[in-house]
Amino acid sequence: MPETAAVSIRKLSKSFDGTEVLRDVSLEVKPGEVVSILGSSGSGKSTLLRCINWLEQPDRGDIHIDGDRIGVSDSGKAMSRRELASMRARLGMVFQGFNLWPHLSVVRNVTEAPIHVLGLSKAQAEERAMALLEKVGMVEKRDDYPYTLSGGQKQRVAIARALAMQPKVMLFDEPTSALDPELVGEVLGVIKDLSKEGYTMVLVTHEMEFARAVSDQVVFLDKGIIIEKSHPSEFFVNPKTDRVRRFLELEAPVV
């Protein structure tokens, strides 16, 4: 039996106000794989990522998470809020702007969903949270509020918050784009550790060196179409299209 894909996207299309933003996008992410989505601004990277957890609803095509279809229930109707929530709980998302909840301390940000979505006890959730804060190096800040943290610290907490749900797949949408350059490294370091631990990840990023180092598969989006999909050793060294070659010259000048 073939291994079930962690994420399977088939012929996905999406328009905003009559403008097609994604067209016939298909993509398989195997368990343990790290897939980077590259492309210039406005090419549809965020939209693709947000379709995976149904923050955006595609017009056509389907998405399966670990073999189960998201957004549409077996009867063919739109999923109920409850069904959708439980599908989304299997996906962790990290946003460019962190999106922490400002009224909760660091540790409460991490325990909130395990307690109120998974039904863990406070003690269980805290144990889990502390282990994750340890992993991202934020243990000392456990009782601080988000507004006291630097961008890099916020993003590390946001990663711990997503991991606390023990998701099948982690989705990252430009996790370091809002950070001061000197803080980028600490966040990329955490993501790199996750890739070594075998987490399945889909990553939108402009950090070319990083994408090259962690990815098993690189996908290039151009105006909503995947025009290249290959291993990083191929993608960065020997791009098949002129479009990608030009992109790489602009984004990662050869040193």
Partner: peptide, 25 residues
Amino acid sequence: NEQREAALAIGMTPWVYFRRIMLPQ
């Protein structure tokens, strides 16, 4: 809206989001 998306993405139903994230604030 960012806080709402973070809540939905992590698996909260709209009701849990309202009660735990929005209402206190």
